[in-house]
Design a protein around this nucleic acid. Structure first.
Lengths: 151, 151
DNA sequence: GACCTAGGTTGGATTTCCCAACGTAGCAGC
DNA sequence: GCTGCTACGTTGGGAAATCCAACCTAGGTC
């Protein structure tokens, strides 16, 4: 029996959480979505310890979620920045799911929460389950099936 | 400045993760979605330590994600079970997001992964961003806005 | 060549997690 | 009414993850 956690788990949820489930990791991804890219920015926004941040960024780069790039501002030396890859940007559903759930189920009486909008029209965007041909599915009528991993 | 993690964080993602981001918590929620309800079932499926499970279940009940119920089978004594509340079931987007991401981005060459389907038609269900009037939004054209928490 | 800054590394305290052993309430059998 | 059995935990001690402050380093400025 494979362990319930770990990169070889039978369950894609467990495999995701093996990488993303450690403390801070999803908050780093959130910061990357918000446009922060630098070690010092992650540190300032999150208040995370430097050694933990180093380790998390390395794991995310290693897993292909983020990419470590060199960049250089005029007359400055080369620096590093960490940006989401296409794989990392696919986490928008997870991030949006957490944002939506927290907003609706763990409210606070003041302050603001992130909300997704259509960039063109400004309309509010919410998560939904849809079929391949675009029909929306009532979450109450949703079932789960175990499907063989392609390949 | 409120801490980036913690129940009073400015960000609904951080508030969600303050509860859900500890090790095992989302896997317990997953098991609950799969229909498991009992202490011993969680323990057997996950291999989680008993003390950690006790603590996680207490937090989830306290936060209104799960409900602790008494039940009694014929000629047996009263037992407890833990079932998702409406608030807990709203985590389907987060769980489905993790499942979909892991399936697509952390593949494995054997075994199965959970996939959501329409219970009536059997059609595959995927996550999408939609507007209130049901129009689907291309994730590439998605923006984020900070919106005041209602009330 | 002295200083500054971004991006780390290192050592040690604290917190969380793991594991095995034990506690306990109710019921069954005798 | 006592012995066991089983589900649901609690407790104690060790291992691992996290936190924090101090330090390091390379390239560029002055």
């Amino acid at each position: 029996m494979p362990k319930p956690l770990g990169p070889e788990s039978n369950c894609s949820i467990a495999r995701s959480l093996d990488l993303l489930g450690e403390k801070w990791t999803l908050l780093i991804v959130r910061e990357a979505f918000w446009g922060n890219t630098r070690f010092s920015e992650f540190r300032e926004e999150l208040g995370i310890a430097a050694d933990v941040l180093t380790e998390r960024l390395a794991k995310l780069v290693d897993a292909g979620v983020m990419e470590r790039r060199e960049y250089r501002e005029d007359g400055a030396r080369a620096r590093h920045e960490y940006v989401l890859t296409a794989t990392g940007r696919q986490l928008h559903f997870v991030i949006a799911g957490l944002a939506q759930w927290g907003r609706e189920n763990r409210p606070r009486s003041y302050g603001t929460s992130p909300v997704y909008v259509d960039v063109d029209t400004g309309e509010r965007a919410r998560l939904a389950f849809v079929t391949d041909d675009g029909r929306r599915i009532d979450p109450a009528l949703l079932g789960v099936r175990q499907v063989r991993d392609h390949a």
